[in-house]
Computed example of a mutant assay.
Amino acid sequence: MRWILLAALAAFSGLCQANTGVAFVHGTGKQTDAYNDYWKPPFVNNIRGGLADPGNYVVINCDFTQYMWHDAAAGCLAEQLTRFINQRGITRLIVITHSNGGNVVRWIMSNPTWDSRYPNIINRIVRVNALAPSSAGTPLADAVIAGNVFESSVGWLLGYKNDAVRMQQTGWMASYNANWLYGTSGRPALPKPFRSVVGTDVDSAIWDADSYCGGYFENVGLETTQLWLSSCSDGFLECSSQSAAGYVWFQDKARMAGREPLSHNQSRRACFGLDSILRADMRN
């Protein structure tokens, strides 16, 4: 009985001393102010408000137009996470990613010997909440690189013909998943939980107020590109790609207010209670 009590006290002491932080990791693009331009303050501020210390947050700004292993991508992410961990004394790190950001984070977790900073980051990570991750790529990337009609219609989403878009071609991601990345079927598990929030549809009816969350014209564009994807998609990624790595935490309609779907743009915005779900998760 005495040993059980001591073990319980030790566990409680460890929890009391834990210092949890959250990192917001953007998707494809070269960001210099992702707080305002990519995520928006209402989303970030509501989520970090769930922390014991709301100041324990970092919004990453890196060049994710590069291949995931590039120094400007994974190297930049590792540097900013390491600085955050050291400056704030973070012992538990929750990572929130969107789209291609999930691939960059998976690169770090799958290749701990690639960079001396990686192991310490992996050790601090509690879990990765991957919002609409492009774990198996997207046919739209194939179309953009091929230079067909998609280039003019979705170039604003994909950043045109950069290396990150080239990397997200479906065949290329299949190769990376088979040889370099963990977490997909038939591959070793990732060292920390990687759980996805899957967007299944796009609404853009002009009379529907919900269609304006995240930007009405962005949702119209995503509903247009959805015509070239499978029936289950967020307008940019098919559900199968979003679900390919780790495990599915939930699909949008199961948890969103009014059973609303999350378009690819809405899954990085304070839409339909997504931010409140992620805020509650900061306490775990």
Rank of each mutant, 00 (worst) to 15 (best):
L278Q: 06
A143M: 14
D37Y: 06
V144L: 06
D201M: 05
E218Y: 15
Y182F: 07
I206M: 11
N284I: 11
F194S: 02
S211W: 09
S13L: 14
S99D: 00
S233M: 06
P133C: 05
R166L: 14
S211C: 10
G21E: 02
G273S: 14
M167H: 10
E260W: 11
Y57G: 01
E223R: 13
N219F: 02
Q251G: 06
A132E: 06
F236D: 10
W39V: 01
V104E: 02
W207T: 08
S196Y: 08
F64W: 01
L181C: 05
P261G: 03
H26S: 04
T28N: 13
P261L: 02
D281P: 02
D210T: 14
M109Q: 08
Y160I: 04
G14L: 14
G214D: 10
I4S: 10
A130Y: 14
E218L: 13
W69G: 00
P133M: 04
I90N: 03
Y118V: 03
N129A: 08
P188F: 07
N162R: 10
T138Q: 02
T225F: 07
L15E: 13
S152G: 03
I125Q: 02
P54A: 04
H26C: 04
E218P: 11
W114D: 10
F236A: 14
G258F: 06
R106Y: 00
S267E: 11
L278G: 06
A136D: 04
I96M: 02
N86A: 14
R92S: 10
N129C: 04
P112F: 09
R48G: 00
R269F: 09
M68P: 01
Q31F: 09
M1W: 12
A164E: 03
Q17H: 09
R48A: 01
Y176E: 10
A132F: 07
W156F: 15
G50C: 11
L229K: 06
A164K: 03
G102Q: 06
N100S: 15
Y67C: 10
